[in-house]
Write a protein that binds this DNA or RNA. Structure first.
Lengths: 244, 244
DNA sequence: AAGATATATGAACAATGATTCAGCTTCGGA
DNA sequence: TCCGAAGCTGAATCATTGTTCATATATCTT
């Protein structure tokens, strides 16, 4: 495993032809798959290249480092999560705190459930990687969106809004992570959703300065890519692109 | 970094002389120090041995693997935490839920605060290590103690006790971890303690079937070993032992 | 169709790190 | 004081992995 890499985390060269774009996508996806199937300790450049159906040299044409590769994958993943949370917050704006509580829990569960394994694996990898600013940025987006959401609550106001948001997010995301790390029993998920909703609401009510009230909403998400296919990833991505 | 190591995580040989015991302690402590000062990626057997003031060969006399070494360190750390939580639970038995809520938060903060950096570093290292059963065992101890505590609450009963405990623990430990991972601002700690207490109480009250009430208690812990001394660790531990 | 540019290849190189072992030192007891 | 056992040493071995580069192939442009 390599050490932290301060500078030059950006791609060495940006793909100009469609072929190259497919290659880059394949490499990114391959990284995740190798991470999941082999573990952080066996995540080697050669293995990633092999899984992607590409040679090592190719990989180094787009990523100056192994670290840069990991950084790219991590960033992509975190961005997805942040977007999901921001979207949920936008949707819930102006609702009552009971609704908001339930909605936030759902949004978080969804965001983390989709590819939770990836979250975990990436988190482990980010150890010796210069991710401080990246994480900070993502956290700010999430914290900001949630703060705005709570400020818009129809039936409550909060004293120390920033601290409340912080605690709420830490507890929720932390709880979810803890649960998933212990090999989430699928039955637990249902319980967890209810319990966290209860906790979230109870906390918000406890720290709020209340007023009148309206009602609730819902939604659901599910995406997954099979990684057991033996077809090389470049082939797959190339095919996909051909369809356009 | 090495791969997962199914069997033979146990010491290759147990120290028979005091000298050897000091050596083993030094190695364990050195592992933690190297982990903290150099990061997981630079945690090599040679470096650990050097920091311990011992040769690599010596290390392999007591640990069959690098993995075994990490396992030993992790186990030692987790045991300490479990003990602290169990003690706190015993102390709080029979109190009112408001007291219990506050007490639990404190116990957790203390347990995790002492050497939180170690917690984090070890967690990262445990990636490619067969720690499933170890973690399971620790979790069971903590969960068990907390469940018993809640069952003993003077002023409340719970329906789905196991689930309540689970959620509570997940949220608290998760929140604390999340906070510390983001470079805990010391001022945040005070806020966090209050907010988590509020959350904990609010949640317990929300899911409880209540009755009459009493009041609260406190405590505090703080331990740290300076790691900046250049004195070799074996020397240090040997000295300590000489005092008996 | 041909040159120019972009992409891809993979053996070779250099660095690092886990692990061993044959010989040395220290300890404890008789 | 002396000997066997326990403990310690560290250069040598063996395996792995990150990274480069000279060469080959594909694609685009005109």
């Amino acid at each position: 495993m390599t050490v932290a890499s301060p500078q030059n985390l950006k791609p060495r060269k940006t793909p100009r032809q469609a072929r190259a774009e497919a290659t880059v996508d394949a490499i990114l996806e391959a990284t995740i798959q190798v991470l999941l199937s082999e573990g952080a300790g066996r995540l080697t450049t050669t293995r990633v290249a092999a899984r992607a159906g590409v040679s090592v040299g190719t990989m180094y044409q787009y990523f100056p480092h192994k670290a840069a590769l990991l950084y790219a994958v991590l960033k992509q993943h975190l961005d997805t999560i942040a977007e999901a949370v921001e979207a949920a917050c936008a949707r819930l704006r102006g609702e009552a705190i009971a609704t908001i509580g339930e909605g936030l829990v759902l949004a978080y569960l969804d965001a983390k459930t989709v590819r939770i394994d990836v979250s975990r694996a990436l988190y482990l990898v980010s150890a010796d990687l210069d991710t401080a600013e990246l994480l900070e940025g993502i956290w700010k987006r999430i914290h900001g969106a949630t703060t705005a959401l709570l400020a818009s609550a129809a039936d409550a106001e909060f004293d120390d809004l920033s601290v409340v948001t912080f605690t709420l997010l830490a507890a929720m995301s932390g709880a979810i992570r803890t649960v998933f790390e212990r090999g989430a029993a699928p039955s637990m998920l249902q319980d967890l959703r209810m319990q966290l909703t209860t906790m979230c609401r109870a906390y918000l009510e406890a720290v709020a300065i209340t007023r009148p009230t309206p009602l609730a909403k819902h939604r659901k998400v599910a995406v997954l890519m099979d990684q057991r296919s033996s077809q090389s990833l470049v082939e797959k991505f190339t095919e996909v692109r051909r369809q356009f």
